[in-house]
Each structure stands twice: as C-alpha cells, then as structure tokens.
Amino acid sequence: MSELIKFLEQESTEKRASFPKFQAGDTINVHVKIREGNKERIQQFQGVVIQRKNPNTNGETFTVRKVSNQIGLERIFPLLSPSIEKIELVRRGKVRRARIYYLRGLQGKAARIKERR
C-alpha cells in the first residue's frame, strides 16, 4: 500500500488501537452517541460479541448480542464509527470459534460462556 494512504489511515489505526482488545465470546459494553433532535446523549449496549468482520480495515464491524426480556437483540457497530464513544471489556469469554452464531439457538443456562482467564 502506498505510504500516503497509510498516512491518511494513521488516524484510524490509532483509533483502533485505543479500543480494548476483544474477540468473539467476550462481553463488552459499547457507549454509543445517540442524537435526539438537537440533544446528544450516550446509550450503553452491553452484550456478547458474536463476530468481528473485516478486521484491521476501516470498515471493520462487530456484532453484539444481548437478550432482553427473552428477546434476542443484535446490533452491528462499525468499529471506527464516530458515534462510538467508548468500548468497555466486561468479561472475556472462552469460545472455540471466531463466529459464535450457535449462540442464537441457545437459551438460558445453555447460552452461558465460560470465562477465559
């Protein structure tokens, strides 16, 4: 890749490095800026990371799943989106694959993930 493109992408590289390292199976808390009219506030979305797509590119996204009132909720966030204020790593999970789609079919006790230490 051209040096000049690297120079342009330096910002996003730095931003990517400012987030904690997380992978599929980890529980994270995403602080998202929400606009309501002219007001801006921060909403938190806590759940299990199901996948990270297009890693180490500007278009990298990750999917967070949480179960709220027995309804599964999944949200896809672009990692470098300006609306992401902060990402907190709550708990590291031990899973055997990079995309844990099987979690969607599991409920209650079965949907637990062992903690990675």
Binding site: L8, E9, P78, P82
Partner: peptide, 12 residues
Amino acid sequence: GMTSLFTADGKY
C-alpha cells in the same frame, strides 16, 4: 489510490 473513511456526519 482509494480507501474509505468516516466523514464528520458519521457516514462511511
């Protein structure tokens, strides 16, 4: 060359 980025209004 080409790349992609987020603009100030949050569009990719």
